[in-house]
Nucleic acid binder design. Structure first.
Lengths: 190, 190
DNA sequence: CTGATACTTCTGTTATGACTGACACATCAG
DNA sequence: CTGATGTGTCAGTCATAACAGAAGTATCAG
């Protein structure tokens, strides 16, 4: 491997490699496939945009996989194509604002998974109301579930409209609320 | 049960079945395996505790799978064993307070997945500080990531200590904040 | 127009983990 | 003590999805 550049696996600093590995593993447990999470981690730590080929070499995965993964990441707006003068190849860089990252992941997953489920749930409730085979308990529970989901949903929608600065304010405000409610909390804790 | 109880697949009301199917599918996309989510949905809609055998019959899955799934669900405290007078068999019922359900799922996933990742990240940052091969950008990004995770973590920990009633208050308070900040928001929205 | 380079799409292979059915253990009635 | 019932465990099978390598397409330089 001293010369021939066949299947070169470019080495990475140990801490960087460890981070990428853990990040990929975490993504794997969260419904994101490993390669995509790893590529994102690599780009997140990179000081300059990378080409697909470099990414493949650094992570030791096939170029085809990198191509597909990059497309996914661009769709999720977690990375972007950046043109480089005098280079025909596509270069990619990661979104570095972590608030944006979580916001976009949340947006995507909600649109793809919870919104359809929400719609289906609505249909279930409607169908259950018209179905005499559904007992009262099931009916109540379905309605409870729907009310809960709708509450969470509208809360989320409102949060989305907030600028990042307000988010920070809200979180520290949340801490204050905790501090205010905990010591003198007259209401029973359940 | 009129006679031969061989591999009986007890029918369910259509809306209930639809809900269970969707719930199972959703769980599947979220790292929970389908059977477990389906069993939880079935118990959630049931008006009385069920035995493993009944569950297997209603969902059309093997008793062994039900046994394993029930154990998981009990570990996550999403369902509980309930004794029934004059019946040796174990009966199970679901937690019906949805706030508790999400709280326990969040607790479990955090303990199993994000806490280890958090620890690993800490190690990465420490190792990176001592490693001259790690460039400044990577160093900064790792530190950013850690700060972000730590913020989210302490926020979450604080939220956990709140009783349910305060949660509701916080959410509606969040809405007020949105309403207050949105129209007069002087700060630029990015 | 032609060759080369970058990128994408396609298909076969592989690995992971979920599920089943059979077996082993525990508990209880008679 | 013994048979019967309920529960847990195990190994084999199967389905799914990620991956690699090859073939195909588009773009650009000369």
């Amino acid at each position: 491997m001293t010369d021939t550049s066949e299947s070169t696996l470019e080495p990475l600093p140990a801490p960087v490699e460890k981070f990428i590995l853990h990040w990929g593993d975490m993504g794997n447990h969260w419904g994101v496939n490993r390669s995509i999470a790893q590529i994102h981690a690599l780009l997140y730590l990179s000081d300059s945009p990378l080409t697909a080929e470099r990414i493949a070499a650094r992570l030791g995965i096939a170029r085809s996989g990198v191509s597909n993964s990059l497309r996914e990441l661009v769709n999720w707006k977690l990375i972007r194509r950046v043109p480089v003068r005098g280079d025909r190849r596509d270069h990619f860089e990661a979104e570095t604002d972590l608030w944006e990252v979580v916001k976009r992941i949340a947006e995507g997953r909600k649109a793809r998974e919870v919104d359809p489920a929400r719609a289906a749930l609505k249909e279930c409730v409607a169908a259950a109301e018209a179905d005499p085979d559904v007992d009262g308990t099931a009916m109540t529970r379905l309605a409870d579930m729907m009310a809960f989901i709708e509450t969470m949903n509208s809360w989320y929608e409102q949060m989305l409209t907030l600028p990042k600065t307000s988010w920070v304010a809200l979180i520290s405000l949340g801490s204050q609320v905790v501090r205010a409610l905990r010591p003198g909390g007259g209401s029973r804790p359940q």
